[in-house]
Structure formats: structure tokens, C-alpha cells
Amino acid sequence: MLSSPVWRGSPAFAFRVGLLLGGAITATVLVVVGSLARAPLPWWARWALVGAVLVLVALNELRVIDVRLPENRRLVPEGVFRLGRHLGPLQFGIEMGTGARTYLPSGLPYIAATAVLLTASVPQALVAGAAFGFGRALMTTANLNHPGDWDALWARHARLTAALLSGAFLLSLGTAAVATA
């Protein structure tokens, strides 16, 4: 996948725009569905549900329990590049940015999705969704610009990066919860 034309020049820009759009699309769907699901629930019950998902994901990541979270276990098909020099990368980015069309090797997006589903306003959801795409764009940009095997490097430091990102994620989630209360 890394040898594809999406990683160079203006197609790369289209790809990154797609990542942001994909995240925003998922967030929009979540907030629309969530506006119905959350209606009968008081704010504390919504955040209690987010907390329950957080505990479930944490126990799963720590291998205390073994739950298979919903995930599309495949790569985005390279056939999307048939759409053209820019539309192909754009669609590739959108599909990857949704978080629903390819592997999702972290539990954090499930917690974020639940928080958006049950607690976010439309603008907050759009910001979180686009930021999710930005996070994925950071990863792909780093992967391209690093001279060595970036994925192997990520795997080697997975514990440290997971701890750092989980800490920042929990700070964000906690602050969002306090602001909503």
C-alpha cells in the first residue's frame, strides 16, 4: 500500500482531505443516530454508558477479557485508485478516515465513538471526527517520511505510545465530561 501513488504530491493532499472528510462523515452519522438514542437519557446516564465502554475496552486491551469489538478486518481495496489521480486517493482517504472500512487496531476509537454518539453536539462531533482523520493522517505522513520501517518502529514502542496516547485521550474525555455536566 505504501508504494501507491497516493503518498506523493497533490494526490497525497487529496488523500489527507479524504481522511478528514471520512472522520467527519462517521461523526455525523453517530451524532444523528445518537440524537435519537440519547433523548430519554439524563446526562449522567450518557456518560455512565461512555464509562462502561471505556472499562470494557480497557479490560479487553489488558487481556483480562476477550471481546471481539466490531471491526472491518480488511485493507481498503487498491481498486479505489482506478477513480483517478485525485479522486482515487480522496476515496481511499474517506474510507480509511471513517474508521469503519479497514482494521482498527486500538480500542480508543470505540470510546470516542460512544462519547460522540451519546454526548456531543453537532459541531463537537464534526471537530472530533475531523481530528480523528488528522490523527490517521499524522500516522500515514510519518510512515512516508520516516526512512526506516515505521510500522516496525511503532510496534517496538507500542507500550509507550499507547500509554502516552491513552493518557491524553483520558484527559480529553474527562474534560469533555466535566464541561458537559
Binding site: A112, Q124, A128, G129, A131, F134, G135, A179
Partner: peptide, 14 residues
């Protein structure tokens, strides 16, 4: 909080 909620979750999927 919403920016970093999304961004950290996105980078974590590396």
C-alpha cells in the same frame, strides 16, 4: 477536548 479526543484515537490506530 474534542480535538484531542479524535486526534489521539486516530493516531492510536497506527
Amino acid at each position: 477536548p474534542w480535538v484531542f479526543l479524535g486526534a489521539t484515537a486516530g493516531l492510536a490506530t497506527s
